[in-house]
């Protein structure tokens, strides 16, 4: 394969970025997209030029580290696929390929295609857990969970935290990410005691980090490499409304 690669280069968070145009030849269609970038980097190094920085780790679509805008689409044209699992044969015929970092206010660029997604960790810190001290758990089968609930919880829990939903959203919202965690835990009996505190505080953290609001575009669902449904956002909204209207945090009253 042979094509023109336009790749975003930015030396640091405060530096201005720009597209660099490279003419790329001799690419096997069996390469993954990241292997193509590896090869481009090897060629840059041979020419004495600094290689392109991009995040990646497991290269099997589960760690959520890689994240590239490929021709304007998060993770590229093939649905339900992370950039590391996208193979060049799916870009056959493309004369030009544009590669950019995730672009969102809450994801500042660190270098080239690498962004800072630590805001997602801070949303989890706000309540994306079930408080259970090690050692204090009851016997695992003592609380049965309906299969359909467990399966639905799993449908939400498979989120890999890559941030494609944020990059796809015109508002830069991380609502699909937040909703996936709220739903995963809220669907299980173990998650009930903290359910309404959780949704209030996670949504508050989400807004504080500079993510935009959800206005039901649904672009996140299309971009999600794990196929997480926007129905979970509806579920989050139900919990949020319920919590905001009826739920009172526990208060200690003096006797």
């Amino acid at each position: 394969m042979e094509f023109t690669l336009h790749v975003w280069r930015q030396s640091g968070p405060a530096a201005p970025g720009r597209f660099e145009t490279l003419s790329v030849k001799d690419i096997s269609e069996h390469m993954s997209f990241l292997e193509m970038l590896d090869l481009v980097n090897e060629r840059l190094i041979a020419e004495g030029k600094e290689p392109i920085a991009f995040d990646h780790d497991c290269r099997e679509g589960i760690c959520g580290t890689c994240g590239l805008m490929i021709n304007g689409v998060p993770h590229g044209p093939l649905g339900l696929t992370t950039a590391c699992q996208l193979h060049m044969r799916h870009l056959k015929g493309a004369k030009e390929i544009w590669v950019e970092p995730w672009r969102a206010r809450a994801f500042p660029v660190i270098k080239d295609l690498v962004v800072d997604r630590s805001a997602l960790d801070r949303i989890i810190q706000a309540g994306g857990y079930i408080s259970v001290r090690t050692g204090s758990a009851p016997e695992a089968n003592s609380i049965p969970v309906k299969k359909i609930d467990a399966d639905m919880a799993m449908d939400a829990a498979i989120c890999i935290g890559c941030g494609a939903c944020v990059a796809a959203c015109p508002n830069g919202s991380a609502m699909l990410f937040t909703a996936a965690k709220v739903s995963h835990l809220g669907l299980l009996p173990q998650g009930q005691p903290e359910r309404f505190d959780r949704v209030l505080s996670m949504v508050e953290a989400h807004d504080r980090e500079g993510f935009g609001n959800c206005t039901n575009h649904g672009a996140c669902q299309n971009a999600c490499p794990k196929g997480i449904s926007v129905d979970f956002i509806a579920r989050l909204n139900r919990d949020l409304v319920k919590a905001a209207l009826t739920y009172k945090p526990y208060e200690i009253t003096a006797v």
């Binding site: 079930i130 695992a140 998650g191």
Partner: peptide, 10 residues
């Protein structure tokens, strides 16, 4: 297994 189930591992 007890610990993980209590944490919400589906």
């Amino acid at each position: 297994i007890d610990q993980c189930v209590a944490q919400g591992v589906p």
